[in-house]
Amino acid sequence: MTEENGAPGVDGQEPSRRDFIYIAAGGAAAVGGGLVAWPFIDQMNPAADTLALGSIRVDVSPVLQGSEITVMWRGAPVFIRHRTEEEIAAARAVELSALPDEDARNDNLPAGTPGFDANRVLRPEYLIVKGNCTHLGCVPLGLNANTGDYDGWYCPCHGSHYDTSARIRRGPAPENLPVPDYFFETETVVKLGLSPEEASAAGWTVSENDGAVA
């Protein structure tokens, strides 16, 4: 700021009083700028109608034992398989150390929970996992096409094999197929998008406990 052309002389003005008002005004400008910025940033967050479809209800009663369906949720596929006794037994017979990924990858449980089959389901007969291969995102094939070498899912893009608990067993995929937030609203209706804790907190009646096993 040049002192010329009749600018207020420094002598005769108390600098502290002069500076105070400039700092106050400048500070108010900065605060205002920050407050104004928030709505313009927040508007890019998902809108109310997008959030409304963040959780969906699926009636699993038409899924007969030994078959599976794929539903679209949040723009991506979710596999729901009604497992047979053999599939459940095969999943539970696997040693943790045999798994390339030992984490349960279950959004309803804390990270690091061991990948036992019991930690991957709320009810053993219904396996519900997100349907994008953890390698590069292709949708693996399942009961309707090719279950791969471990009777679960097979990803044709680069040859990843998942077992009957949708855990990676062989191939380039680094992680088990993740288990999304869900809970059973009734015996046959699953709500995708809320974990049992979130559901209870929101006032839902949760039909099942979380079934965690250490």
Partner: peptide, 9 residues
């Protein structure tokens, strides 16, 4: 109605 602060913008 639905976009965050959309009514304001």
């Amino acid at each position: 109605r639905d976009v965050n602060f959309g009514w304001m913008i």
